[in-house]
Every structure is written in structure tokens, then in C-alpha cells.
């Protein structure tokens, strides 16, 4: 199989697994209110998310320098600016302590925490002997 075909196969696997995960979440979690047994559903859905992350990692391994740089720059600048614009819009339109604003805040906070953890790992893995 050619490299190009392997790349698109990995991409299809990553996006396909995300679609399947969305379907599973849609079938598992009610539209309003939480689930009745979060102690079972929450870990199960984390496993589903882990499968999507693994499929994405397989695709990432097939990307080259330029593609990775494009993804990193796009997610950092595009993703963060988009999130901030939506956060400000929600706060202005629904109030600082509305459920929507709080929910968006939790997502943004979790994104920042995840970024900080990965950044620290990256920082310490890249250290060499200081002289």
C-alpha cells in the first residue's frame, strides 16, 4: 500500500472513530439532565474518547513536519481565538454565571489545564545538560 493511501486510511479511521464515538455518546447520554449511573457511563465514555485519541495518534504518526506545523498553528491560534470569541459572546448574551457561560468556562479551563500538562511534559522531555 502506498504512503498516500496509508495516510488517508489513517485519517478516515480517526474521523470515522470520532463519528462512531459521537453516535455512542448520543445513544448513551440523554438530551437534558445527566445520566442515572455516571459511575459506569463516565469511565466508559472516557474509554471511547481514548479509542478516538488512539486513532488520531495513528493518523498523526503519518503526518509530516509541514502538516503537523499546520495543525499546531491552526489549533493554537484558530482554536483559542474561536473559543475566546464564543466565551465572550456567551458571557455578554447570557450573563457571567449562566449555565452556558459556566459550561463554556469549564471547557476552556480544562483545555488550558490539558495544554499546561502537555507543555510541561514537552518542556522537561526537551531538557539537556545545562553547562
Amino acid at each position: 500500500m502506498t504512503y498516500r493511501k496509508m495516510f488517508w486510511l489513517a485519517a478516515a479511521l480517526a474521523f470515522g472513530s470520532a463519528l462512531v464515538a459521537g453516535f455512542i455518546i448520543g445513544r448513551t447520554v440523554p438530551a437534558t439532565g445527566g445520566v442515572e449511573n455516571p459511575e459506569v457511563v463516565l469511565p466508559a465514555l472516557f474509554v471511547v474518547a481514548g479509542v478516538v485519541a488512539f486513532a488520531s495518534w495513528l493518523w498523526w504518526q503519518k503526518t509530516d513536519d509541514l502538516q503537523q506545523q499546520g495543525q499546531l498553528i491552526s489549533w493554537w491560534w484558530g482554536g483559542n481565538i474561536g473559543a475566546v470569541v464564543m466565551l465572550i459572546t456567551l458571557v455578554v448574551m447570557t450573563g457571567r454565571h449562566s449555565e452556558m457561560s459556566m459550561g463554556a468556562g469549564y471547557v476552556f479551563g480544562a483545555e488550558f489545564a490539558g495544554m499546561l500538562i502537555v507543555w510541561l511534559v514537552w518542556k522537561f522531555r526537551g531538557r539537556g545538560a545545562a553547562e
Binding site: T2, Y3, R4, F7, T63, D64, D65, L66, Q67
Partner: peptide, 9 residues
């Protein structure tokens, strides 16, 4: 294809 990178690169 020979270098296993994207054509875009």
C-alpha cells in the same frame, strides 16, 4: 511518495 511525506511539503 518516495520520501513518505505530503506533496504539499
Amino acid at each position: 511518495e518516495a520520501l513518505e511525506v505530503s506533496r504539499q511539503t
